[in-house]
């Protein structure tokens, strides 16, 4: 899967303002709306929060991968957000999350978002790449970690 087909500079926000899970998700969804990637923001928000109820997507080491299958998109869409101070995302290790990768994919299959998330996870597995993302001063610096 080619990450550069999915991510670009406009889909990165390095200074998220939100202070809790729903504010962060709302902010990231706004980013997708601004880029014309989302048909129905309300539905997408509902679907993502439903998925969060099933199982929190705050994984470990400050990473959260909120995602869901939804009718609000036709293709796989994603965006990246960073909030240095971190917010509580009910993560597995209890550490506040500071790197957020939000993914939405069409609802009829388990589909390509797993491959996308796997690719992303493989990259941000190392502490080095996580530090690079947190210290990035521009959107391009964030993308360069993903080889874009």
């Amino acid at each position: 899967m080619k990450l550069k087909n999915i991510l670009n500079k406009d889909l990165v926000k390095i200074d998220l303002k939100g202070n809790n899970k729903s504010e962060i998700i709302n902010e990231l969804l706004d980013l997708l709306v601004e880029n014309g990637k989302l048909k129905d923001k309300e539905l997408a928000f509902k679907d993502i929060m439903y998925r969060e109820q099933q199982m929190s997507t705050g994984i470990q080491q400050g990473i959260a991968i909120p995602h869901s299958k939804t009718k609000s998109v036709d293709n796989l869409v994603a965006c990246i957000g960073v909030k240095k101070e971190g917010v509580d995302f009910s993560s597995l290790d209890g550490v506040p999350s500071n790197i957020f990768i939000l993914t939405l994919s069409p609802s009829d299959h388990i589909g390509p978002h797993v491959q996308f998330l796997a690719e992303i996870s493989r990259i941000i597995k190392t502490e080095e790449s996580r530090i690079k993302i947190l210290n990035a001063r521009s959107k391009n610096q964030v993308l360069s970690v993903f080889g874009i």
Binding site: M55, I110, V114, Q115, L117, A118, S121, R122, K125
Partner: peptide
């Protein structure tokens, strides 16, 4: 990562 996430999604 792929297998773990696929399992998680399922």
């Amino acid at each position: 990562s792929f297998v773990r996430l696929m399992m998680l999604e399922s």
